[in-house]
Simulated scan of single mutants.
Amino acid sequence: MQVVSISSLKGGVGKTSVTTGLASAALAAGIPTLVVDLDPHADASTALGVRPGEHLDIGRMLKAPRRARLADNVVPSGWVERANGKAPGGQSAATLDVAVGSAYTGIYDRPDLGRRDLRRLSAVLAGAEKYELVLIDCPPSLNGLTRMAWSASDKVILVAEPGLFSVAGTERTLRAIQLFRGEFAPNLSPAGIIANRVRSGSAEHTFRLAEMQSMFGELLLAPHIPEQANWQQIQGAAHSIHHWPGESARNAAALFDSLLANLLAAEGRQPAGAVRDHGRR
Rank of each mutant, 00 (worst) to 15 (best):
I6G: 07
G89H: 11
A237K: 07
A128E: 04
A249C: 11
V167G: 05
G14P: 11
R119D: 10
W150N: 03
R269H: 03
R276E: 10
R280Y: 08
G268T: 07
I157Q: 08
T206G: 11
A123I: 06
D257Y: 06
R116Y: 09
T206R: 14
E218M: 03
A123M: 10
G114C: 04
A26I: 08
N196F: 12
R281T: 05
N262L: 04
V75R: 13
I107E: 15
A25M: 04
S92V: 12
A149G: 11
E171R: 13
N230W: 09
D57K: 14
Q235G: 07
R51D: 04
L264R: 13
F256M: 09
P65W: 05
I107H: 08
L188A: 13
A42Y: 06
W79M: 01
R250P: 07
A253R: 03
A44K: 03
A254L: 12
S92A: 09
G14D: 13
G14W: 10
R281V: 10
Q270S: 09
P186K: 07
S248L: 09
R276L: 11
V167H: 12
T20S: 08
G273P: 14
S102F: 08
R147N: 08
K15T: 04
L221K: 04
A28D: 11
G127W: 01
P88A: 14
L56P: 03
V13G: 01
G90V: 07
S122Y: 02
G246P: 15
A23Y: 03
L113G: 02
D72Q: 13
P226S: 14
L145A: 10
R60S: 06
F165T: 12
V156K: 00
W150V: 05
A253P: 04
D137W: 05
A266N: 01
S151R: 11
V18W: 04
D117R: 13
A195M: 07
E227Y: 12
A152E: 10
M61I: 01
V167T: 15
R51K: 13
V18Q: 00
M212P: 00
L96F: 00
A128I: 10
E132P: 09
A274K: 11
M212I: 09
P190S: 14
Q235F: 05
V98S: 03
S77E: 03
L255Q: 12
A195R: 06
S5I: 00
V198N: 07
I6S: 02
L113C: 15
A87C: 01
A128N: 07
A274Y: 05
R276M: 09
G85P: 06
G268Q: 03
P88G: 05
A103D: 03
T206P: 02
Y131F: 13
R197F: 10
D257H: 02
N187F: 07
M61Y: 02
E171F: 10
F256Q: 02
G144D: 00
